[in-house]
Design a protein around this nucleic acid. Sequence first.
DNA 1: CTGTATCCAGGGGGATACTG
DNA 2: CAGTATCCCCCTGGATACAG
Lengths: 132, 132
Amino acid sequence: MSEAPGGAGEGSFNPYSRACPSRRFLKFLGDLWTVLVIGALYEAGSPQRFTEISLRVDGISTKMLTNTLRALERDGLVLRHQYAEMPPRVTYELSPMGQDLANVLRDVEGWATGHMQDVLDARESYDVAHGE
Amino acid sequence: MSEAPGGAGEGSFNPYSRACPSRRFLKFLGDLWTVLVIGALYEAGSPQRFTEISLRVDGISTKMLTNTLRALERDGLVLRHQYAEMPPRVTYELSPMGQDLANVLRDVEGWATGHMQDVLDARESYDVAHGE
DNA sequence: CTGTATCCAGGGGGATACTG
DNA sequence: CAGTATCCCCCTGGATACAG
């Protein structure tokens, strides 16, 4: 019952090894746009259109929104619905697995905003102690 | 009681706004090296030396390990201890706030490794359906 | 051992223009 | 509206050499 640094058992994935696919995946999950897009879809609670998402995620470019949504869809985290209308209408929503992930990422987001002030203070102390 | 996309109340931080400092912080927290270094320190359970950390986090360069540790220390998430010895000895450990964060990030890591296979399968299905 | 300093290639990602 | 296609700059981050 020896454990790798990641605590993964045998036959599992371990992001602490550079060759493991979970490392790249973890990197993707941590990507700012990934986190915010998933969070936006989660917050919305209903299928969102391309433009709606871009409005919720301030500053995201069409390129990155496209890339992010495409990757999320490919990974089975987001469901894409296309309607044969004119003008075209496309919506995105979290898959069950995506919603599960959203809950995890939401904790990270909550932790970040919840401790932001502490961190800001810590930085100030550090900068003062280390000569700006 | 209106809510921003991030669900943050007034006076709080909201990473969905590009100007909010929490966005940059969230980006830092999601960074691969940040996640793995914190995870490594958490797993270790005791203060770790520079070299020990680099061994746990496969593939990290001295530059990035230094940068990451420095940033974590500045943010009050990691405590650095320096001993006046020869050869020099320095150890790092999570601060109480850092340990709190570690628990959150650990869930993300666990989610990633726990769903890696599902994602791998989803990708294969997607690629087949969309012509490789 | 624990970093720091520099160089530099590669890729991420913004801005912009254009299409079905 | 929902993207796609390019250009292209910048900045990340690896490699390397060196210092305390």
